[in-house]
Amino acid sequence: MGGVAVRVEGLWKRFGEQVAVAGIDLELPAGRFIGLVGPNGAGKTTTLSMVTGLLRPDRGTVEVVGHDVWRDPAQVKARIGVLPEGLRLFERLSGRELLGYTGRLRGLPGAEVDKRATQLLDVLDLAGAQHKLVVDYSTGMRKKIGLAAALLHNPEVLFLDEPFEGVDPVSAQTIRGVLERYTASGATVVFSSHVMELVESLCDWVAVLAAGRIRAHGPLAEVRGDAPSLQRAFLELVGAHGRDAGHDLDWLGGGDR
């Protein structure tokens, strides 16, 4: 505890004309539940992809638990779990087959994989659907099977990109329970979201990202400051407060139709 889980220095990524990530420096403390928040298009997914080695940065370095992601991939890949957003799974496998496949690719012994898979399927409430193909899963079930695949090798740091997006309240509560138990054991969770209430209730450390830059970071209370809620603080940080266009729509909801 107390160490640095992820260290990012001078991270840049440009897609054609558009700069997606414009020089991020960030140190994420180990053993925390960390929220990466920002509006749509702020660069959250791009940042997480570069941190997890799925996207090559134009510039900058990323270290996860002391190992460089690009120079020492073997050390890093064994220690992280990832649930990306917008990428497919091997959807023509059943939930159980997907876990078996992922665990064995990770080099775990077969019997151990099967044992862990059974437990994860049970805890995540997927046991009833374990023989169904993932392509037929609902959004919540997909997120849960993705989370199970990311947890299977007991990583030190877990990266989740929008894990609650489109997930029903019951599945969200299940995911939440598993993540809380996981961080309580000293592991680090980094997750991105634009739902402030969720971040506020889950995280103890946040980083605010807007237009490819870090606007604020630190313990939740510090970032929130004097604002009544994280939502307010966030709107001020990204400069979206006081935009009230109500009077332009005076016909809306009126008597005449």
Partner: peptide
Amino acid sequence: QDTSAFWMVALTISS
């Protein structure tokens, strides 16, 4: 043929 599910393979190839 893997489509973007290739990330699951990419994350387990470190050498």
